Amino acid sequence: MAAPGAARPAPPLVDHHCHGVVRGELDAAAFEAYLTESDAPAAPGTSYFDTQLGFAVRRWCPPLLGLPPHCPPERYLARRRELGAAEVTRRLLRAAGITEFLVDTGLPGDLTGPRELAEAAGGTAREIVRLEHLAERIADTSRTTDSFLASLDGAVREAARTAAAFKSVAAYRHGLDLAPTPPAPAPLRAAADRWLTARATGDPGAARVADPVLLRHLLWAAVRTALPLQLHTGFGDPDLRLDRCDPLLLTDFVRAVRPTGCRLVLLHGYPYHRGAAYLAAVFPHVYADVGLALTHTGARAGAVLAEVLELAPFGKVLFSTDAHGLPELYVVGARLFLEALDTTSARWVRDGAWCAADAERVAALVAADNARRVYGRGGTVADGT
């Protein structure tokens, strides 16, 4: 423990859920689009810099580019253009303090893959395979329903050979109120046939897999590999219905998965993060994530983290940034997490609720050790496609 009044050295960070960053230059509108989960511009006369996340970017990132904290957005973006995207990405990723990245490669766009991200950051990376994206790729090349189902199951098994984990966005595609058990063969084949037929006719609504029977099949295909399964819960962009993303809706699925030993990681959670913490408290194979929520709550991140730590065992909470598109989001995610953890635990130490040694031990658990235990250790892998 550091001496009284001295800054504690930051623990190493394992970012167990993140995405690539944009390779090219961004104009002001494109940059701001990554500061919100909305799919619309800011209200007339305003900016998405005027949010908790926007203020956090202006607090933490300008000094890393040679500017004072809280400098005007226009000055910050001008400095960004002056340095160039590659240099900005290198500076910010290396300043974030993250040594290992687990990268969800299922998002579209010209984004860095795991290897490229790790090289820019000076760390290591592994891939998280998004189940729905995998199914859509298989559907693009399948001629029949039988070949689709066989190829899909084979692709999941093959991905499990190198991936760190699987991830599902069933919360976006249907909601978490899914039947908890694997679908029977007949309804599964019927659902696959309906989807492939709709895709073949050019139905734009069939571009993505959204049938609850197919989503259940994907979840259970991942469970059978014994790799960890990440599940989006809580808030996101307007593509989801927030009321159907409460992690407590997964309770029966959690119970059904328990005998398999598959570890379930509940991502994000907010504003249902206390429900995620409860599931992590009562089920041995469930873990809770604090990513995304801390980034978007900014100056209130400490309150959100404290609510997660009210009930979740300290060995069941994992750090992530859920950074996407902007290297700034890695910096903000890491700094807000470390500040929230330090100020919250310091308060509890002052109050006598925790001792200083335990505070340091919990910090190491949440920052990195829990993720290494859940996902194992691994080096950089080839970029996902």
Rank of each mutant, 00 (worst) to 15 (best):
R75T: 13
L318K: 00
H16Q: 12
V254P: 00
L152W: 08
A78Y: 00
R59C: 09
A125P: 00
A382N: 10
A293L: 09
A280S: 15
V366S: 01
D15M: 04
G20D: 01
A206Q: 02
R244L: 14
R80Q: 12
L26C: 02
T181L: 14
V374R: 07
F337E: 06
A356D: 15
R80T: 04
L305E: 07
P62L: 10
I128F: 07
L196E: 06
K167D: 05
A28M: 05
L229R: 07
V257T: 12
G384Y: 04
K316C: 01
P185F: 14
V103R: 03
P69A: 09
G122W: 11
T251I: 13
T144D: 02
T251V: 11
A312L: 10
L250V: 05
P271H: 04
Y287A: 01
A340D: 09
Y330H: 15
G275H: 15
E32Y: 08
L107N: 02
E74N: 02
A323H: 06
L35N: 02
Y270Q: 06
V14E: 04
H285G: 08
D193I: 00
V374N: 05
L107M: 15
S345N: 06
R161A: 15
E307A: 08
V254I: 12
H268T: 02
A135W: 12
G234E: 09
A207N: 11
A276G: 15
P72H: 12
S47C: 06
M1R: 10
